[in-house]
């Protein structure tokens, strides 16, 4: 099997307990989700708060196991206990809150944490740490305390920490939600570079539309289901559906869409300002 992730109708129920600790019922967070992600792809999962996208991310990293259905990561079933470590090594995960995932008090020690757990020999750990920190452009901060870094820098350290485990795939679970615009750019740039240069599969979970436009495929989630999927062009040609799922369009697409409403014959699925400018020039020349 040469699929990075293959999920077949997986569902997941959270258990809800009452004040006395007795089972009150279950909440369905994932509802029959099927996924098919190739090696080397850049995937974005869009969805409103509470749409189930974080729960889905945790399935790929085997932090949660589906209540129904099966999911294979790099050809391995996540339900099998003995696959756990291999799956977590090949599909690394970066979380939302930069403060709650850095374990060590020095940057390089945090990046070394994953390889230490994998039992990598000491000399190789150092090589991996150096290489990973250089890849995300944080090598000069290797001796710093994480407390002194900006949000974007902390997230890049977290990415390096995953990278040092030599994964085939990195899942980024809303890595930019708590960052300022500058930090957001840094993190997205790092993720794209990993995909372009290192050919690592990226699964980016976000609700910033602008971050999705460079991906190979987009999945839109709502109420635990995948409700839309396709290329960015396809997805962002369906503004009404996106609004229904509490999402929106990238800025340039919004402008193009409004212009179309005003009678200017622009094509669907314009994603960035360069495309918009090109199309407008075409229209002007046609006149």
């Amino acid at each position: 099997m040469d699929k990075m992730v293959f999920a077949d109708k997986i569902s997941y129920d959270y258990k809800a307990y009452d004040e006395n600790g007795e089972l009150k019922g279950t909440v369905r967070a994932l509802d029959g989700v099927s996924l098919d992600i190739k090696h080397g792809d850049f995937i974005t999962i869009l969805g409103a708060n509470g749409s189930g996208k974080s729960t889905l991310a945790k399935q790929i990293n085997a932090l949660l196991c589906p209540t129904e259905g099966t999911i294979f990561v790099d050809g391995k079933d996540t339900a099998e206990e003995e696959n756990l470590l291999e799956i977590r090594q090949s599909a690394g995960m970066v979380f939302q809150n930069p403060d709650n995932q850095i374990i060590a008090t020095v940057v390089e020690e945090d990046v070394g944490f994953g390889p230490e757990n994998l039992g990598v020999p000491t000399k190789e750990i150092w090589e991996r740490v150096e290489e990973s920190l250089k890849t995300v452009g944080m090598y000069e901060y290797r001796k710093s305390s994480p407390m002194r870094l900006s949000g974007g820098q902390k997230q890049r350290v977290s990415i390096a920490g995953v990278l040092a485990m030599h994964p085939k795939c990195i899942i980024l679970d809303e890595p930019t939600a708590m960052l300022d615009p500058q930090g957001r750019k840094e993190v997205i740039r790092a993720a794209r570079a990993l995909n372009d240069v290192e050919k690592i599969t990226i699964i980016l979970i976000t609700h910033y539309m602008e971050e999705a436009i460079y991906s190979d495929r987009i999945f839109v989630m709502d109420e635990g289901k995948i409700v839309m999927q396709g290329t960015p062009k396809e997805i962002f040609s369906r503004p009404d559906e996106l609004t229904k799922h509490r999402l929106t369009l990238p800025m340039a697409t919004q402008v193009a869409y409004r212009l179309k409403e005003e009678g200017i014959p622009l094509p669907d699925g314009i994603l960035n300002r360069k495309e918009l400018a090109r199309e407008l020039i075409k229209i002007k020349e046609a006149k």
Partner: peptide, 12 residues
């Protein structure tokens, strides 16, 4: 959160 992050990085 931290426990999850450690588990995700193969801490055992």
């Amino acid at each position: 959160d931290l426990a999850l992050a450690m588990e995700a990085r193969c801490y055992n």
